Computed example of a mutant assay.
Amino acid sequence: MAVTDSLFETAKAAMVKAHAPYSRFPVGAAILTEDGQVHSGCNIEIVSFPEGWCAETSAIAHMVMAGGSRRIAEVAVVAEKLVACSPCGGCRQRLAEFSTPSTRVHLCDVDTGVVETVTMGDLLPHSFATDALSEAGDGR
Rank of each mutant, 00 (worst) to 15 (best):
I44G: 10
E45I: 06
E45P: 13
I46H: 09
V47C: 14
S48E: 15
E51P: 07
E51L: 11
E51F: 05
G52Q: 04
C54V: 06
C54F: 10
T57E: 15
T57S: 02
T57M: 09
T57P: 07
A59P: 11
A61P: 05
A61K: 14
H62P: 02
V64D: 12
V64T: 14
V64P: 11
V64W: 10
M65L: 15
M65A: 14
M65Y: 13
G68N: 04
G68I: 01
S69V: 03
S69W: 01
R70E: 11
R71A: 08
R71K: 11
I72S: 08
A73Y: 01
A73M: 01
E74I: 07
E74Y: 00
E74A: 00
A76K: 12
V77G: 04
V77Y: 06
V77C: 01
V78N: 13
A79D: 12
A79C: 13
A79W: 11
A79S: 15
K81Y: 09
K81Q: 13
K81C: 09
L82N: 12
L82H: 12
A84D: 08
C85L: 12
S86E: 14
P87K: 04
R92S: 08
R92E: 05
R92V: 06
R92N: 08
Q93L: 02
Q93C: 01
R94M: 08
L95G: 02
E97S: 10
F98L: 06
F98W: 13
S102V: 06
S102N: 07
T103E: 00
H106R: 03
L107I: 06
C108E: 14
C108F: 12
